[in-house]
Structures are given as structure tokens and as C-alpha cells.
């Protein structure tokens, strides 16, 4: 034993480094072996499709997924010049603008009022988070019935009190708003639960000492609650933005991208281009643009917004 240690100590620095590297290499491969199942699954279902999409975006691809010819950047150029794509980008940004702030504000409001210790509050907590249990398809169908052009509940109410019917889903000016309202309703449950969880984590002692110092409700809200909730708010905003860029089901069920492409959000546009029209090349290019967009937005959020987040 001691001989060996002595021998090691006697070794020159170069061979000691070599030994270290060898060990590191061995560690690396052992680690890889343990991660292999995860890597295999993620690679197969995530990275492979992603690289294939990138690859397709530079080719003319037929509807069976065979590449026909190299297209260079022409798929991207086609999108650049396409008025349909511009309309759908515009709709996507407007949709994010309509849904993200509203969802967060409304669910924050609901979370704050249900964070009070009042009798019967669990009922409201369950009620406000219930949309989490509704699937996109079911939720959108409920709204489809409410917004129906001739027998919908909303239009019947309007007609009942003497107003004109509104083309909730059939008018280009209203359709995006209708889809947004549906989306806000559907996302409330998730955001509400996360925000409520965040609120419950804030220590009661802080409020007690604030009250002793004479802080009112609003001061407590803005000086304690919001700052301490900021990590949760940040998380919720990142997730909500990504979700809003990836909305699909409600568009498919409510409007099918219409009227006149006013609700043709980017993911729906990709779906239509690829699976209805069979143009996988341009659809892949759109998917890459969406990927880049979400990546950039998320980086921006982490770089700039996260600085304002207060971690305990």
C-alpha cells in the first residue's frame, strides 16, 4: 500500500496529469451510460425532429416527406414575401399582446383575493383553478357553443337586450378577440394555482411586522407581496408567453385560422402548410422562425427581466 502511494508521489507531474485525464474520461463515459436512456429518448423525439426540420427548411419537400431538390434560402425568402405569413405573424404578436398580460393580471388578482383567510375560500380556490382540468378541445368547444353565430348564448343575450348580433367568430375584427378570451379563460387555472402557491410561500411574519410598522393593505401588496412573488411571476410570464406562441387547439376548433387569416396563428399556419397543403419545406422554415422567435424572447426575458426578480 504505502509503496504504491510512494510510487504515485514519485511520478512526474506529466504522467500524473495523464492519469487524471484518464480518470475524467472514464467518469465521462460512465455518466454518459447513465444518461443514455434519457439522451436516446430526447434525441429521438426532440433533437432528431428538430434537425430534420432545419434540414427540410432548406429543401423542396413533397407531401410524403421526400426531399425533391435543394432550395437554399428560397423557403425563407418565400415567407419573407408572403403576405399570408406576415398576416399570421401579426396575428401571433397581437394574440400574445392580448392574452399574456391579461391572463397574468387576472390570475394574480384572483390569487390575491383568494389568499385571504376567509370562510369558504377553498371553494373559490377550486373554482378558479378548475379550468386547469379542462382540455383545450373541451374548453374550445364550450366557447364555440357560446359564440355560435346564430344560436350562441352571447348573441342571444345581445339580441334579447336589443343589440345587433356580433360575428364573434365570423368577423375578422372580432375573431382574434374571441380566440383570445377563450385562451385567457383556459390559462387562468394554471396561472392561478402557481401564483397562489407563490403567495402562500410568503412568510406571515413579514406582514405582521409590516402591520406593526403601520403599513396599509396597498403598501403591503406592493412592498411585500409583489416583490416576493416576483420569481413566480417571472416563471408564469415565461411560460405564458411560450404558450401563447404555441397556441393551436382553440384556433383549430373555433375558427380554423379564418376569417381571412385573422386568427391564423403561426403554429396553425405551420400545421396548415404542412398537413393540409403538403408543403413541408416552407412549413419547416416557419417552424424554424417560430423556434428562433421563442428562443430570442426567452433570452431577453432572462437577460433583462430576471434582473428585477427578487430571490429570497
Amino acid at each position: 500500500m504505502t509503496d504504491q502511494v510512494a510510487a504515485k508521489q514519485l511520478m512526474d507531474p506529466a504522467s500524473r496529469d495523464k492519469e487524471k485525464r484518464k480518470k475524467a474520461r472514464k467518469n465521462f463515459w460512465t455518466a454518459m451510460l447513465f444518461m443514455l436512456p434519457a439522451i436516446a429518448i430526447i434525441g429521438f423525439f426532440l433533437f432528431y425532429p428538430m434537425f430534420k426540420t432545419l434540414y427540410f427548411s432548406f429543401f423542396v419537400v413533397n407531401s410524403r416527406g421526400d426531399t425533391i431538390s435543394f432550395a437554399g434560402l428560397s423557403n425563407y425568402l418565400y415567407l419573407w414575401e408572403s403576405s399570408t405569413f406576415r398576416t399570421s405573424m401579426k396575428a401571433t404578436f397581437l394574440f400574445a399582446l392580448y392574452t399574456v398580460p391579461t391572463t397574468i393580471l387576472v390570475s394574480l388578482f384572483l390569487a390575491v383575493i383568494t389568499n385571504e383567510k376567509v370562510r369558504g375560500i377553498p371553494f373559490f380556490r377550486v373554482a378558479f383553478s378548475s379550468t386547469l382540468g379542462v382540455s383545450v378541445a373541451a374548453g374550445a368547444t364550450i366557447w364555440l357553443i357560446l359564440l355560435h353565430p346564430s344560436v350562441g348564448v352571447f348573441n342571444n343575450l345581445l339580441a334579447g337586450i336589443g343589440f345587433d348580433r356580433i360575428g364573434w367568430l365570423t368577423s375578422s375584427t372580432w375573431a382574434l378577440i374571441s380566440v383570445s378570451i377563450t385562451t385567457i379563460w383556459m390559462n387562468l387555472g394554471f396561472n392561478f394555482i402557481i401564483l397562489l402557491g407563490g403567495l402562500q410561500n410568503i412568510s406571515e411574519e413579514l406582514y405582521e411586522s409590516a402591520r406593526v410598522d403601520g403599513a396599509g393593505y396597498w403598501t403591503q401588496l406592493f412592498k411585500i407581496t409583489i416583490p416576493l412573488l416576483s420569481p413566480t411571476l417571472f416563471f408564469v410570464s415565461v411560460v405564458t408567453i411560450i404558450n401563447s406562441f404555441q397556441s393551436f387547439g382553440q384556433v383549430d376548433i373555433l375558427t380554423g385560422g379564418g376569417p381571412n387569416n385573422s386568427t391564423n396563428l403561426i403554429v396553425y399556419s405551420i400545421y396548415r402548410e404542412a398537413f393540409e397543403s403538403g408543403f413541408f419545406g416552407t412549413a419547416s422554415a416557419q417552424a424554424m422562425i417560430l423556434f428562433a422567435l421563442v428562443l430570442i424572447l426567452t433570452i431577453i426575458q432572462f437577460k433583462f427581466v430576471e434582473k428585477k426578480v427578487h430571490y429570497q
Binding site: H148, P149, S150, V151, G167, L169, T170, S171, G256, G258
Partner: peptide, 19 residues
């Protein structure tokens, strides 16, 4: 009348005497 793109919707409108 504008009842959108869905076959069922316009048929419902006709049955409901909206058109």
C-alpha cells in the same frame, strides 16, 4: 348573413330562421 365556414352553423341558422 355571414355564418362562417362551418356547414352545421349555416344549417342551424336556417333551422333557427335566422336566414
Amino acid at each position: 348573413g355571414n355564418f362562417g365556414r362551418q356547414w352545421d352553423d349555416i344549417r342551424t341558422a336556417f333551422a333557427a330562421e335566422n336566414v
